[in-house]
């Protein structure tokens, strides 16, 4: 008991108990693979993404694309490490893609929040949802 009290006084009280905890990255760290032009031939939804410079862009973005076998509603959003919604990137009905092709242009996240302010460096998680398909990808913003 005495040792516990002393430890509590000396070193185990570094942060607030009721503050927000870090959820991401969690134990199930995921990442969408880079897009391959000929990999979208499937009856399932396929998602791919990579960080890069889109044509005409002046800064790098995280570019998300997907193949849809059928017309469907698609929702893509970014969450911070505390699991708070940072920005809703896409929330609309989307037409089916041609077999073997991904959506063009990709949905680009320019590392800004809903107010257009660049987010602080760190871990973020993107969520993709369409029908019963849901997938995540963890991104480290530099």
């Amino acid at each position: 008991m005495l040792l516990l009290a002393c430890l509590a006084l000396v070193g185990c009280s570094s942060d607030a108990i009721h503050g927000r905890q870090a959820f991401f990255p969690g134990s199930r760290l995921t990442s969408w693979a880079a897009c391959d032009k000929f990999s979208g031939i499937s009856d399932n939804i396929e998602i791919c993404a990579s960080t890069g410079l889109l044509p005409g862009a002046s800064a790098q973005t995280y570019n998300i694309s997907f193949s849809l076998p059928n017309d469907a509603h698609v929702r893509i959003a970014v969450f911070d490490s505390h699991a708070a919604l940072v920005r809703l990137l896409f929330d609309d009905d989307e037409a089916a893609t041609l077999p073997g092709f991904f959506r063009q242009p990709p949905i680009a996240w320019d590392f800004t929040d809903a107010n257009g302010v660049r987010v602080s460096p760190g871990a973020y998680r993107l969520y993709f949802k369409s029908g019963s398909t849901q997938s995540t990808s963890d991104v480290e913003v530099p």
Binding site: M1, L4, A5, L7, A8, L9, C12, S13, I17, H18, R20, Q21, A22, F23, F24, G26, R75, A77, F79, H82, A83, A84, L85, L88, D91, Y127, K129, Q134
Partner: peptide
Amino acid sequence: GVGGTIVVQFADIEGFNDWSSHARAYVKS
């Protein structure tokens, strides 16, 4: 005094069918 606390947080992933949880233990005076 001195006490130990276990805190569990649950996050609803807004707009998606998912939630996440996290737990931490504290010893504080």
